[in-house]
Design a protein around this nucleic acid. Structure first.
Lengths: 114, 114
DNA sequence: TCCATGATTCAACGACTATTGAATTAATGG
DNA sequence: CCATTAATTCAATAGTCGTTGAATCATGGA
């Protein structure tokens, strides 16, 4: 991952609502969930949400597809992995950090903590 | 690591010059380096640098101590580790990501890539 | 004490961010 | 075709960010 991409991804995650959105999508797994459901879960105005989705999408942290009138957003774990890779490689003085960290959608967890 | 701390740390790293500063300090290791040396290495105005150091310090990513008239800044690897921990735990759907990632100062590397 | 050096403080500035309300586009069902 | 639902676009706004220049503080040496 390039430095500029890392910065974009970091900036995308460095915001309260966006971090919530991303965590929610991570929990939702690869199938993702409709924008409306995210809006309902996090109590965000639809236009505000569109704004944040745009940032996440620009950062490559999220994908969209249309399903009827719903837009289904899903987390891109690959990008999250690249970001973790970049941070361990460049901000940890090298090798000691990186015993093959990998980010998979996998199993659900108890509950998102705020 | 708390969510708000994670956001502060992410925001601290999500900026070109600050990321450069932090990477430089990571390379410098636990002894750190004087503000002036950082300023020279990255060609930053001293007041601009103070501004960025403040952010990094607020995020807990950096420590300072005085040595004569120099201020010696050093990376706090512990915080970086916590951040990586938070991201793998909360943004990777849980366990599959975290085979004990750890961030140590340790050995130098070839060269920072821009 | 005086001066030079290293760094911080402060005010100002343009640029960007996050949110809002109103209007608009897209797809579906009757 | 019309109404409804889902989401996006757009303009406006307050607030924050990054940088600059000038002034100030702190330390050490002559």
């Amino acid at each position: 991952m390039e430095k500029t991409d890392a910065i974009t991804a970091l900036a995308a995650l460095a915001q309260d609502n966006r971090l919530d959105v991303f965590r929610l999508l991570v929990e939702a797994g690869p199938e993702g969930m409709p924008a409306g459901a995210v809006a309902a879960a996090l109590d965000l105005a639809p236009n505000t949400l569109t704004f944040h989705f745009d940032r996440l999408r620009t950062a490559g942290l999220v994908t969209v597809r249309r399903d009827g009138r719903s837009m289904i957003y899903a987390a891109r774990f690959e990008t999250m992995n690249s970001l973790l890779g970049y941070l361990t490689e460049n901000c940890c003085a090298g090798a000691p950090c990186a015993p093959t960290v990998a980010c998979k959608p996998a199993r659900k967890r108890d509950k998102i903590s705020t």
